[in-house]
Design a protein around this nucleic acid. Structure first.
Length: 435
RNA sequence: UCCCCGAUAGCUCAACGGUAGAGCGGGCGGCUGUUAACCGCUAGGUUGUAGGUUCGAAUCCUGCUCGGGGAGCCA
């Protein structure tokens, strides 16, 4: 077999080779035959093209091979690229020569409807289907867009550790692991480390997996998910929200312009996505409570919002909406209380439209040493573990703010999916860690 | 942890107290333009599991296991 070269022809730009003879390497996506003619849908990861084998055009051996091909068998096909309106994709390959690389027997995923359990158990093969391809390409585009936006604005990528000595927020359950006889935990947020990095680099972000050992079993939860967490020195809550709305708008518009084909494949109605541009509406927690009560929700001041509450709030607006200044008591220890009203914190959540819920949580951080020490005691956190964090308030403390955006929820929203499990290549869910 | 729903052929489902079926996928055959192609034939089942009720259970009841949706918590 000839050497695999990266310069080889790929299906996504097959149009450039019209009229030429090319060699494609890929897998059989599906096959239809009509006696003396075989239609082989070939996919190579970049796209799908229909290959046509006429009995009269090839050797009897080649035709017999084409006839015997099974779904997902790997092949090398050589032939002429031809424009043809009847073909899906607009181009066809008139196959003259065909080689079998490997014959796949009894590929489990048939071209038909399947159940969630079956597909998730065959995730390693499900990734080959067109829809999953489209979703993961949108995910890749979102991640690229996030990084481009931040990189172009003076942010430095400073990744946070995944193995950590203690809870960042000390509230949710952590995955515990043995660290040579000591306990270590899988990170649930890189934020505290980003605060240290922001004092060193000004504007920073991290992008990596985070882990929550909560026994959440909903369409919005994964045990392992990816979060992008920017942090900015000399920034307050207002600036934080301005960056967020610009950031989210940039990401959405970028996907709309570069991944239109994928959104079409997913049958995503993009009319509401097109409206995602700054500024986003801002409502206070107090206003949110009033809206909920007006909609018949019985809710006390001080509590957090549930998923149905978030949907009601988001439905009031066309664009994503900020809910700011939540009660300090319900928020993490590092949130800075509003100096004009200490019972609320200078924080904001961004709720996506169409019922997708919270995609960003963020806010201004506590920059005063004494108040932070007090909060750590109030939250029953071990002060020794946070000495390094307190140092940031001892040596040149400044107002600073940041946020964390969940990639999977953002992908689900932009793709219009009803569950986050398809937005990550291999979802880690409650009671499901295979494959 | 709690609430609701489900488990029948490889897959998606039907049969709802009286002999377990269909479509897709597999195998064999037919067809020179198919679009999840079509047509014919064929193989494929201890109905998740353990009990119970009944002359008789896939079907009704109970436990268990596994899965799905949701709550809480969060991104």
């Amino acid at each position: 077999m000839e050497a695999y070269l990266l310069t080889n022809v790929i299906i996504s730009n097959i149009g450039e080779y019209e009229g030429q003879e090319v060699t494609l390497r890929g897998w059989v996506y599906n096959k239809r035959s009509s006696g003396k003619i075989q239609f082989i849908l070939i996919r190579d990861g970049t796209g799908i093209i229909q290959g046509v084998v006429f009995k009269g055009d090839v050797t009897p051996e080649t035709f017999a091979l084409a006839d015997s091909l099974t779904q997902e068998s790997s092949i090398v096909a050589t032939g002429k690229v031809r424009e043809d309106k009847r073909a899906p994709g607009g181009y066809e390959l008139s196959i003259g020569d065909l080689q079998l690389v490997h014959r796949a027997l009894d590929y489990p995923i048939a071209p038909k409807e399947h159940g969630v359990d079956f597909l998730m158990s065959h995730r390693h093969l499900w990734l080959r289907s067109s829809q999953q391809h489209a979703i993961l390409r949108v995910r890749a585009e979102i991640i690229n867009a996030c990084r481009d936006y931040l990189d172009e604005r003076g942010f430095t990528l400073i990744d946070a550790p995944i193995l950590t000595p203690a809870a960042c927020e000390g509230t949710t359950t952590l995955f515990e692991t043995d660290y040579f006889g000591d306990k270590a935990y899988l990170s649930q947020s890189g934020q505290l480390y980003m605060e240290a990095a922001a004092m060193a680099f000004g504007r920073v972000y991290c992008f990596g997996p985070t882990f929550r050992a909560e026994k959440s079993k909903t369409r919005r939860h994964l045990m392992e998910f990816w979060m992008i967490e920017p942090e900015m020195a000399f920034a307050d809550l207002d600036e934080d929200m301005r960056v967020q709305e610009e950031f989210v708008s940039y990401v959405v518009q970028r996907v709309l312009s570069k991944r239109q084909q994928e959104l079409e494949m997913l049958q995503r109605d993009t009319t509401r996505l097109k409206k995602v541009e700054p500024p986003f509406p801002r409502i206070s927690y107090d206003e949110a409570i009033a809206i909920l009560r007006k909609n018949g929700v019985e809710i006390e001041w001080g509590g957090d919002f549930g998923a149905p509450d978030e949907t009601i709030l988001a439905e009031q607006f066309e664009k994503p909406v900020f809910v700011h200044r939540y009660p300090t008591q319900s928020k993490a220890f590092y949130m800075k209380p509003d100096p004009e009203r200490p019972e609320v914190a200078l924080c904001a959540d961004l709720l996506a439209p169409e019922g997708y819920g919270e995609i960003i949580g963020g806010g201004q951080r506590m920059d005063d040493l004494e108040m932070l020490e007090k909060k750590i005691v109030e939250h029953n956190l071990p002060k020794e573990a946070y000495e390094w964090y307190l140092d940031l308030r001892r040596y040149g403390s400044v107002p600073h703010a940041g946020f964390g955006m969940g990639i999977e929820r953002t992908v689900a929203w932009i793709c219009g999916l009803d569950h986050v499990r398809e937005t990550i290549p291999f979802a880690r869910m409650l009671y499901r860690i295979y494959p």
